[in-house]
Amino acid sequence: MSTRISFILNGSRVTVDVEPWESLLDVIRKKLGLKGTKLAFCRGACGGCGACTVIIDGRAVYSSILPAYKVDGRNVITIEGLASPEGLHPLQEAFVEAGAIQCGFCTSGMLMSAKALLDENPDPSDDEIKDALRGNLCRCTGYVKIIEAIKLASKRMRRPAGGG
């Protein structure tokens, strides 16, 4: 018995039929064709690696363990919603510049957690950044450069464009 749901995905309304057991991750990747959100280390069972992180109504969640029907009527942002036609999001630029990406598998999830953090708290302390990333695993970078990248983006986003 599938349910028809309708929600805002990266700014546009989508309508899709989902089964009760289908995760939001499966629906986004397989039915809506957006492959930037990843299924990684935890195989979507326990939840914890964070590669599947998306933002729902301003909050970072694991799409791999979220039943898709629950996003009916809500606002979902995936990694594809981060850049604009003008270019990359400051967080994406900072990740590239700081060397916060190696294999890249965790990156989309890291970016979504970072975006949820900065949207809520534009000037986070190191501890606040670490807390926001506790639910995201990276097997390559060792996290230091990811934290640096988020600090860099936070600094740039707080300063008006063109300002010193």
């Binding site: 970072a60 969640v61 694991y62 639910g135």
Partner: peptide
């Protein structure tokens, strides 16, 4: 451990 779990 994770913000995402605390959100859910």
């Amino acid at each position: 451990p994770s913000r995402q779990l605390r959100n859910m």
